[in-house]
Every structure is written in C-alpha cells, then in structure tokens.
Design a protein around this nucleic acid. Structure first.
Length: 489
RNA sequence: GCUGGUAUGGUGUAGUUCGGUCCAUCAUGGCGGGUUUUCAUUCCGUCGACCCGGGUUCAAAUCCCGGUACUAGCACCA
C-alpha cells in the first residue's frame, strides 16, 4: 500500500469515495432570516455539491407552529440569501408543510408495521419508564388499537389536545443511550400554520419529517451540526426497520463569534420588535442581512467557512478573521476617497502654481485600471480642510505638497516629497461635500461628521476612506449629505 | 446520572485513516520594518502550538492504555 504524499489541502476534504451525483440539503427553520451560523450550512453543502457534481436542496423544516412559528416572509428571504451567498439558486426547494400528506402516509405504514405506536403517557411518566428501560402501557396495545388512536389524534372531535398523545418509534428499550429509546416522531399541534392553516392536526417532529424527506429526495450525504448526532442515530434506527440506507453523515461543531454574544432568531425578533435594533439588517446583528448591508462580499463569507472546514471542534472565532476574508475579496476593486473628519479650514498659500489645470489622484494605487479621481488644481487662496487631530506646523498634503501650517493658513513649500514629515489626507473645501460616518462602538452607533471629496456615489457603494478603512454608503440625505456605515479596516 | 463528541501557537486550521519526508502547514493576530504617499490598504521580517501521564517502537502529533478539560443529546424545538 503506497502512502499518499502529504501536501496541504485546499478547501474541503472530498467526501469518502469521491462520489459524483451527490444530493445534499440545507434545512433551516424559516422562523426568521438567515444568520451567520446558517450560512455555514449553505456554504458547506453547496461546496460539496459543486465538488461532487451533485445537487443541493433548500428544505424548509417548518413543522413547529408553536415554539418556532414560521415567518411567511422568511421562505423567500432565505431563498434569496441562499442565492446571494452561493451565486446560484438551490437545485430544488422543498417545504415540509406542503408535503404533509406524504409524511402522514408513512406514519400509518409505520403503525401498521409495528414500527411505531401511539402513546398517551404524560411526558414525565414516560421519561421515568424510559430511564428505567421499562415499556410504557401503550406500547403493548394491539396494532388495531394504535390505528384507532392515530385516527383519534387526527380528529378534532376526538377529544385529544396538544400533548395528550404522541407517535413514538419503537426501539430496543435496552439501548444504552436513553435519548434513542422509543423516540417521539409526531405530536398534536393545534396552532395554525402560516402556510397551510389548520389543515393538519398532527405534525411530525424534525427527526421523523427529516428522515422521511431525506429518503424521498434521495439525499446521499447529510452535513449537520454535531448537536444532531443523536438525530442521526434515531433516524438510522427507523431506516434500518424500513430497509433504507441512511445517508453518509458529517458534522461540524459549534461556532461562536467573539464580537457577538449568543443570539437566537427569536431573541433577535424580540429585540427588533422592541426597537433595540432597527431591523434584521441592523449592523450590530449577526444576520446575513446585516453582513450584506454592511458591505460584505458573499465570497468572503464563503472562503471564511471553507477555511473553517468541517471540524467537530467547538470554536470561537474573531470578526477580524471574517474581515480579513472580506478585505481580500474587495480590496483591489474598491475605490479610495479622502474623508476628513472634524475638519479645520486653512487658506492655501502658493508661491508656485500647480503645473496642470487639474489634479489627478489614482482611485487605487495598485490598480491603475480603476483610473483617477480628478480634482480641480489647487490654487493660491483656496480653502483646504484637514483633520483637527492631524494639525501640526509641518505636514505633507497627500499626493500634493509639503506645507507649513499656521492658525489660518497652509503655505506650500514645495511639491516633491523631500523629507519625512507626516502625510495627511485632505480635501479642497470647494470640491467636497458633507458626509457622516457611522461606526458601531460598544454596541452603540456613533456619528462622525466630516467632509468627503466631491464624488457621486450611489447607495450601497463600498469605498475605502483613506486612513480610516472601508465603509458603505447607506443613505443619501435630501441636502446631499452622504451617510456611510463603517465596514472594517 | 446515562450516551456521545472534541482536544495542534492568542484565535482558527493542515498533517492523524496507512508511525519516519513534521525541530509541525497556512491564515489571522501581536511585534518590528519597507513603500513618491504612510493612524487604512499593501509588502517584508518576526513571535508563537502537538491536553496530561504511561506504554509499544530504531522512530509517535500520528498507534495502545489511563487520566483531565471542554462540549452536545437525553424536548410533545429545529
């Protein structure tokens, strides 16, 4: 047996056996838009599909109408966010609530084949029995009785309410892992569903719905969080009884971003509704909507997740890491502009005129194809603006001249760089406009007013403000003032 | 308590399947420096790790045994 040459692998480790025609799925609960955490599932699953010439399904697991009620806008939002992230639409979109008849048909098969039964024990009682590896009284009832119970569960006039009965999958009760013993598969849920109303009374739980759907869709590989390991084990028990082959399964660990605390979709919804945050795209929130509106490139989010790979370690990463991916993605094509915060005005004194009637500054020093910013040539008597914190007697105005600065004037000494004095960014007062930079500091949004060199920028444009960092145009006010939101260094 | 999972520098990650090419990869970060453009970006240099203890072996990050730490499930959530 020859040993493979060790070399650094780029990207994800290929799936075992390097299969082609794989089918993967990303299965979010549509109870809100995508979070950064969700995007990992999107990126990893689509990347495997791409690597192995397969398909990726976007599946909405919307079978909880009570604790995690689906949000009707989220279906569309998530589909669009999926496309934004990967650059292409999912190969298939499946919505669990629209496929209920299929699941319910499988339940009756499972009950008749004695793979499942209807249990009316109180949850606490059942747990005690289960922990003692004892069967509950319902389990030994005749199959015909279970079929009747099943019909009664589904009958609004049957007298059973939420919590009164549950369908369980029959397993070996001596299984060492208590979590797997006679696991619950469906429950009564009378809260209406935003898509199908009260068309169904009994809804499958994730483990059952997902198990059946993965089989129906021909899913070959499941990539999910390791918190779902027991889900795999439960579902495998059902697959074995049905003679199905369970997909190959891979796991990732939990990811925490230092800068964001723990956010749940429902907690974010509460805060947005309370006005703590302006919306799902509030720059302080770890949602894809926020990353997108802050100016992150989808390829940055992709390369970030690909770099994390598929380890089962629970990790805590810094936003700096995500930011560095974004810098790589946008740096070479982002134009630079001069933005002077807290400006001081000085009269320009020039003994010698600028040798041209216009003043060109490259839009990007390393990318000449981006062209130049054209300013009018600075003239004797013009007012220039410099940042208050830069004020010093001897300065160099970037791209322009060495100056001696006093309380009211800036006198040009010479144009060529001739010494090591500090270089500062500046603007011509008559060739600049008001602008405000919004920066999130300590979870508060702070305003930094200043003057931006004259340039037309449309909403959503990402720029690099010299000596400040990257920012995106988030608002253009009536009076022409540009509002930027700070992105990162 | 029961059942799993994971452990490589400050943070991530490659290498662990098949022990040697690993005095351990790449990135991020920190530090220092360069750039006719400089608190941003960019470039260069540098710092820094195999959880612990035994064992097997000529040779262990990699195999075995025993610890420890962290983490997940045991929901009529996904």
């Amino acid at each position: 047996m020859e040993k493979r040459v060790k070399e650094r692998r780029e990207g994800l480790r290929p799936l075992d056996g390097e299969p082609t025609g794989v089918v993967l799925r990303f299965a979010p609960n549509p109870n809100g838009p995508m979070s950064l955490g969700h995007s990992r599932g999107v990126v990893i699953n689509s990347e495997f599909a791409r690597m192995h010439e397969g398909e990726v399904i976007l599946r909405f697991d919307d079978t909880d109408t009570k604790r995690k009620p689906p949000s009707i806008e989220a279906y569309d939002t998530i589909a669009k966010e999926f496309e934004w992230l990967t650059g292409r639409a999912p190969d298939r979109i499946v919505t669990a609530s629209e496929r209920m008849p299929l699941y319910l048909a499988h339940v009756i098969e499972d009950i008749e084949a004695e793979r499942a039964y209807v249990c009316t024990c109180a949850a606490g009682d059942f747990k005690e029995l289960r922990d003692a590896k004892k069967t509950c009284p319902c389990r030994s009832l005749a199959t015909t009785e279970h079929v009747e119970r099943w019909e009664r569960m589904n009958d609004p006039k049957g007298g059973w309410q939420d919590g009164d009965a549950v369908v369980r999958i029959r397993t070996d009760l001596t299984l060492p892992n208590p979590a797997l013993r006679d696991w619950p598969a469906l429950r009564i849920q009378t809260a209406p569903h935003p898509k199908v109303g009260d068309a169904y009374r009994v809804w499958p739980l994730l483990d059952y719905q997902s198990a059946i759907e993965d089989h129906l869709q021909g899913v070959t590989h499941i990539v999910r969080g390791k918190d779902l390991m027991d889900s795999t084990r439960k579902q495998t028990l059902l697959y074995d009884m049905r003679g199905w082959k369970y997909p190959d399964t891979l796991y990732w660990g939990r990811v925490k971003v230092h800068e964001f605390g723990s956010f749940s979709t429902s907690a974010m919804r509460t805060d947005i509704e309370a006005g703590t945050y302006s919306g799902w795209d509030d720059p302080r929130l770890p949602t894809i909507a926020a990353f997108r509106s802050k100016g992150y490139a989808p390829e940055a989010i992709r390369s970030f997740w690909l770099e994390q790979g598929l380890t089962q370690k629970d990790i805590a990463v810094s936003m700096k890491t995500i930011e560095s991916h974004n810098v790589k993605a946008i740096e070479s094509t982002t134009p630079r502009y001069s933005f002077v915060q807290d400006p001081l005005s000085r009269r320009l004194g020039m003994h010698e005129t600028w040798p041209s009637n216009c003043f060109n500054i490259p839009s990007h020093p390393e990318n000449a194809s981006m062209g130049n910013r054209q300013w009018p040539a600075p003239k004797d008597g013009d007012s220039i603006l410099i940042q208050a914190t830069d004020f010093s007697a001897s300065l160099r105005l970037k791209e322009f001249a060495n100056v001696t600065v006093s309380e009211d004037a800036a006198i040009v000494e010479d144009f060529d760089r001739s010494d090591r004095r500090q270089i500062i960014h500046w603007v011509l007062e008559h060739h600049s406009r008001d602008a405000v930079l919004l920066i999130v500091e300590e979870n508060q949004i702070k305003r930094h007013p200043g003057r931006l060199e004259n340039v037309d920028l449309e909403l959503g444009k990402v720029v690099q403000l010299e000596r400040v960092g990257f920012a995106i145009v988030t608002e253009i006010q009536e009076d022409g003032t540009l509002v930027f939101t700070y992105l990162h260094d």
